[in-house]
Structure formats: C-alpha cells, structure tokens
Amino acid sequence: MNDTFQLDGASVPFAPGQTVMQAALAAGHYIPHLCYHPEFKPHGSCKLCTVKIGNHTAASCTMPAEAGLEIESDIEELNALRRTLVQMLFAEGNHFCPSCEKSGNCVLQALGYDLEVHTAGFRHMYPDRPLDASHPEILLDFNRCVLCELCVRASGEVDGKSVFALAGRGITKHLIVNSASGLLKDTNIALTDKAMEVCPVGVILKKRVGFSKPIGERRYDQRPISAQALDDAPRTPTGAKHE
C-alpha cells in the first residue's frame, strides 16, 4: 500500500523518493512550474511551484513527499504570488511576444495566460543583452532567458558537453557558452542535442524555421499549460487517471 499526502483536499499517493511535484503530476494534479522538467533533477529556482504546508511555504519540486502532509496549492494567496513571480520574470528580460518565434509554445507566456497575469505589475528593467547569431544553424536570443538552467542541465547531464553555463551574480546573472570567444559558433553544440529542445522560452532557436506553424495553432494555443503539463507528465501505475 502506498503512502499518501493531501493536496488541496485530494489524496495523492507517492512512492518513496518522490517529490511533492512528481507525485502530484503523476496522479493528475497540476502545480504550476517553470524550471522543473520531468526528465531532469529538480532545480528549485523559479519558485512558481511554491506550496503551503500549514504556515510554512516550500518549493514543491524539491520537497520530498511525506505521508500525511496537508498541502495547499491552488489558493488565491499562492496564485497571486505566482502572478507576481511571472511579472518579475517578464520585467527582468525583454519579452516582445508578438515577434517571438516561441510565442504560443512558450512556457512563460502560457503561465502568464493560465495564471491570468493581466498587467505588467513592475517597471521593466530593459537589460542590454545582445544576440548571438554567430552559429550557422542556431540563434541565441538572450533577451528571453529566464535562467532556469534547463539547457545547462541538458547539455551537461544528457549531451555530456556543457555548452551552457550561468555567469555573474544577482541581477547580472546571465547565460554564457563554453568557448573562449564567448560565441556559440566556437562550441560543439549540435542541432540534435538535448539542449536544443528544453528551453521553455525563446532563447535557443533553430535558424530558418521561423513561424512554420502559425500562431494560434501552437502548443499552448490549443490547450492551457495546466492541461498540457499533465498530458506530458510521466504517470505511475498507481496514479489516478486524469479525466
């Protein structure tokens, strides 16, 4: 018999070693997330997945599941927090969605819609982040980076290349590539790399494939991210079926 915890009143089974996020998704319960990806070790940096356990808050993607926990997630207080975090991420970078190739497939944008972020909320910071178009096949538009380190993890752990890393500290933290010139063309990145697939926003782009699928027919145009994420989640056999 599996142990369970309570999530917004529903009983969620879990296997030993699972985090709250893993168990919840496997059982068909959505908790908003950005830096978490089912194929990688949890990172715990975006904090969109913050949940409440009594008076205390924690990132559910890194929190080990424990029997008997009473967890709140889909409550106004936390959704307001998540809206502010999304606003912060928008304000920190330069996101001009209408001209972005990732529009409609972008996790940040989809979270914005799903959480009903209707206003900018903060003064935008307009950082100066030049593009890297040096590579013949790949474009890096740093303006949109949300520093989730998924590309760093994918390139290091899956591709075994470490093409990407984060440099700097605090608000000046930024993505760098593994070359003395600082340019992508001088790295050993390949189109087939896992790192090419994982960026939740529009930083790492294949050149010359712009807008092959029209806006309106893209991933999160079809179904909101809260539904998509559940379709994508690995299910444990014990997990309750979704829908």
Binding site: L48, M88, E92, L147, G168, G170, I171, K173
Partner: peptide, 12 residues
C-alpha cells in the same frame, strides 16, 4: 541570483 523572488525582488 539563484531564485526569482530574490534576484529580481531585491533589485526592484
């Protein structure tokens, strides 16, 4: 700069 709230929030 690791987490969103502090990285962006302290600057704001």
């Amino acid at each position: 700069g690791f987490c969103t709230p502090c990285r962006v929030g302290t600057s704001m």
